[in-house]
Design a protein around this nucleic acid. Structure first.
Lengths: 192, 192
DNA sequence: GTCTATAACTTGATAGAC
DNA sequence: GTCTATCAAGTTATAGAC
C-alpha cells in the first residue's frame, strides 16, 4: 500500500493512548473509584463525549488496557533478551521501575482485576506465565524461579505503595534491588 | 466494675464487625467500586440506615477497617511470639492464609490505599514497620529481612489473586511456601 | 438500633449539533 | 473526531418513624 509523502509517517501518539494513560494514572494514583469516565476525559483534556467515541464504554477502556499490557510484556521480553545476561535479574530490576509504562499498566490492572475478573485476570496471568517460563529456563530451578516471581511482586507492590515519594527512604529503590539480585545469585551458587 | 450475672458475658460478635466483614469482603472480591453502602448493608443483612447508624459515612467504614487491622497485627505478633521459633518463618507462612481475618483486612486496605491515602497508608506502613523490626531481629541481616518482607507481599498478592480457586494449581499454596522457608534457611546458613 | 423515604448529587451512556 | 445536552440509574447522606 503506497503512502502519500506525508512529513511525519511515524506512529504518532494518538488520543486513544492519551486516554488509556489517563485511565491508568487515575486508577493508580486515586483508586478505582476515582477513575470515572468524566475524570478520565478531563485528565486527557477531552470531553466525555470525546472519550466515548474512542472507548464506547467503561469495559472497553479496561479491555484497552489489557491489550496494551500484553503488547508491553512482549516488548519488555524482547528488550530483556537483547540486553541482559540473566532474565531473572532483569525481571527483578525492572519490577521497581514504578514509572515504566509496563509496571504502571500492570499495577492498574491489578486494581481492576476483581471488578472485571473475566477480562483482566487472564491477561495478567498470561503475562505471568510468560515470564515464569523464561525465568525458569534461566535459573533452572522451579523453587528459585518462583521466589524471583514473588520477590518481583513484592518489589512492585512496594514501589507502587511508596509511589513517587519525594524524599522518604524507598524500600524498593534500585540499591535495595541490588541486594535481592545478590541473594538470588548466592542461591544459584548453592545449587550448583 | 461488677457485672450483672448475664448468661453470656462473652465478647459477642456485633453488627459493627459484621459490617466491616461485609465491607472488606466486597472490596476484596468485587473491587472497590462494588463496595457501595447499599451493597455492604445488604451483605450484612442490614438496611442502609442501619449501616449508617454504626458508621456515619464511607470514610468511617474505612477508618474502622484501619483500626481492626492494627488490632489484628498485634494479635498476630502475640501469637507468633508464643508459638513459633522463627518469626520470619511465621510471617512467610501466614502470608498465604488467604482466609485469615488479618490477610483479608490487609488486602482490602491495600485496595483502598489510594483513595483514602491519608488514613490507610499510615496504618499499613505501621504494621509493616512493626513486622520488619521483628524479622530483622530474628534474622540479623537487613537484606534478608527485607527479602522476607517482599516475599510475603508476593505470596499475599498471589493468594489474593488466585482467590478461593477451586482446583487450579495454587502457586502460593502451603507446599510452595515451604520451599521459600527453605530458601531463607539456606541463605541464613550462608551468612554464618 | 434499625427501618423507610427522600434529598442532592454523580455516574455511565445516548443523541445529535458542529 | 469532538463537543454539549440530556437521561435513567445509582450514590452518599439526612430526617424522622418505629
Amino acid at each position: 500500500m503506497p503512502e502519500h509523502p506525508s512529513p511525519a509517517p511515524a506512529p504518532r501518539r494518538n488520543r486513544r493512548d492519551d486516554l488509556l494513560d489517563a485511565f491508568a494514572r487515575l486508577v493508580l494514583e486515586q483508586g478505582e473509584r476515582a477513575a470515572t469516565l468524566e475524570a478520565v476525559a478531563a485528565a486527557a483534556d477531552v470531553s466525555k463525549g470525546g472519550l466515548l467515541y474512542h472507548f464506547s464504554s467503561r469495559e472497553a477502556l479496561v479491555a484497552g488496557l489489557c491489550e496494551r499490557f500484553a503488547a508491553l510484556v512482549e516488548a519488555d521480553i524482547a528488550a530483556a533478551t537483547e540486553h541482559e545476561r540473566s532474565l531473572a535479574e532483569w525481571y527483578l530490576r525492572t519490577s521497581s521501575d514504578y514509572d515504566s509504562p509496563l509496571e504502571r499498566t500492570m499495577a492498574a490492572l491489578m486494581r481492576l482485576a476483581q471488578h472485571h475478573d473475566a477480562v483482566v485476570r487472564p491477561a495478567l496471568l498470561a503475562g505471568r506465565e510468560r515470564w515464569y517460563a523464561l525465568i525458569l529456563d534461566d535459573l533452572g530451578d522451579e523453587r528459585l524461579a518462583h521466589a524471583v516471581l514473588l520477590l518481583g511482586d513484592g518489589v512492585a507492590y512496594n514501589s507502587e505503595m511508596e509511589g513517587p515519594a519525594p524524599d522518604a527512604p524507598r524500600r524498593s529503590s534500585a540499591a535495595t534491588v541490588d541486594g535481592l539480585v545478590e541473594l538470588v545469585r548466592a542461591l544459584r551458587m548453592l545449587r550448583s
